[in-house]
């Protein structure tokens, strides 16, 4: 994963749990609503998706490996001879 999965699981669970509590406290859902246990699970999934997707931050571009073109042997009869430094 390119992001932070542990942070995603912990904060996602808390986000879903607290979102459910807030929705109840603000009178949006009743206390027996299944959303109170579904939302923490959705939060964990969201955290993992965010960690897998990692849409934020700079892309770590690795420099392309430097390859030098093969040097032809000076002596055509000695194929094992390489370039001399």
């Amino acid at each position: 994963m390119k992001g932070r999965p542990i942070l995603g699981v912990i904060s996602g669970f808390l986000f879903g749990f607290l979102l459910g509590i807030s929705l109840f406290l603000w009178g949006v859902i009743p206390l027996h609503s299944d959303f109170l246990w579904i939302l923490p699970l959705l939060g964990i999934v969201l955290g993992l998706v965010m960690a897998w997707w990692a849409p934020f931050g700079k892309t770590s571009e690795q420099p392309a490996p430097v390859t030098s073109p093969p040097v032809e042997s000076m002596d055509p009869e000695s194929p094992e001879s390489g370039p001399t430094s």
């Binding site: 992001g3 932070r4 995603g8 849409p55 892309t59």
Partner: peptide, 9 residues
Amino acid sequence: GTLAAGRRK
């Protein structure tokens, strides 16, 4: 915090 999990390492 959940959105921050989507920040690249």
